[in-house]
Amino acid sequence: MDSTSTAFALDDLIVRSARLVRRAQQLPPAGARPVTIAGRVGGWIAPTPLAAVRALPGVDVENEAVHFRAAVAKRLGLDAVLQSVAQALQLAGCIRAWRDELIDVVAEGRVLARIERGAVRPLGLLTQAVHLNGWAPDGRLWVARRALNKSTDPGLWDTLSGGLVAAGEDPDTALLRESHEEAGLPAVALAAHDPLRTVLRMRRRLDDGYQVENVLLSDCVLDAGAVPKNLDGEVLEFRCVDLSELWDMILHGAFTLEAELCILDSLRRRLQGVSGSVSS
């Protein structure tokens, strides 16, 4: 891609990506204990959320770990125990925003239960996020600015669409759903999208807990003349930028950490001509 080389070189992408990966790999919060779900290791809980849930049925607190399991004596299954945990976290102010959305609880590679989305960070549970880099046929990239009322990273720039995989949902379905909700793209517009790939597993200390998240990414070349349109109120504006403008935005920290990592990954693949990428 000749237009790419005028803005940056492969070494620039590698150096910047390495710096971002270090930011995305942090130890759990101070004083956090490992969490097990039905006997399987699956999260981290800091002292404040632990204080909110430690007396609940199905919660067993030990010095080295905190265990969540079905409360047989109370006739509470694991889902019911985790629902009460989420409600206690909400009452204690540990949940930034209650979403009324369920996320699969995964531990040691197995889906064990479901829990309110707002509770995953306070418990340090693993989530999956899908992202789409939508390219114009002329090599420009569509980017989306997050709404100012978003609970995380308001007003920063993002990939064209992205979001968490919901309970019982596979990542490809989540990608199509998010691309429709956030960018108004029908499934047919993504028919030729690249297979989702894992960019990295993020581990970050956030204000509302510990983010442990697989970041999955797909690239797609949109039809000429396609213009994204937000449908769920989560995007303030869209912009289709050439690579020089894109690189300038990156250097000025305009993107969320996840979005920049995804964009750098796509740019690297396009520069290297990776087989299966949209530039091959």
Rank of each mutant, 00 (worst) to 15 (best):
R114K: 14
K229N: 11
A38L: 04
V227A: 14
A52W: 06
V35N: 01
E178H: 15
E169M: 10
W142F: 14
W157K: 06
Q211S: 15
T198K: 14
A129R: 10
R69Y: 10
P122C: 13
L200Y: 09
E108V: 03
V41E: 08
A24Y: 05
F238C: 02
D100M: 02
L271H: 12
P28R: 08
R205G: 00
R140I: 06
T48C: 01
G42Q: 03
A32F: 02
A86K: 08
L231T: 03
L251C: 14
L271K: 04
A192K: 11
N63C: 00
G109P: 03
T48F: 07
E64M: 00
R205L: 01
A7P: 12
E260N: 07
A73C: 01
G225D: 05
C94T: 05
I37N: 04
E64Q: 07
L164W: 06
V143F: 09
L82V: 08
L156Y: 12
D194W: 01
C240N: 11
W135M: 09
D104H: 08
R204C: 13
G253F: 06
V105K: 12
P28G: 03
L190F: 12
E213Q: 15
G134Y: 06
R33D: 00
C220I: 06
I250R: 06
A9P: 00
Q26P: 00
V105L: 12
V120N: 06
V59L: 03
L50Q: 04
A191I: 06
G77E: 14
E64W: 01
G93M: 09
V72Y: 05
R146P: 00
T198P: 02
I115C: 06
L56I: 11
R19V: 07
A107E: 07
Q87S: 13
L27S: 10
S5L: 15
P49V: 05
W157Y: 08
S151F: 10
L243E: 03
W135H: 10
A73H: 08
G39C: 12
S5A: 15
R268C: 04
L112H: 12
R204S: 10
Q83F: 06
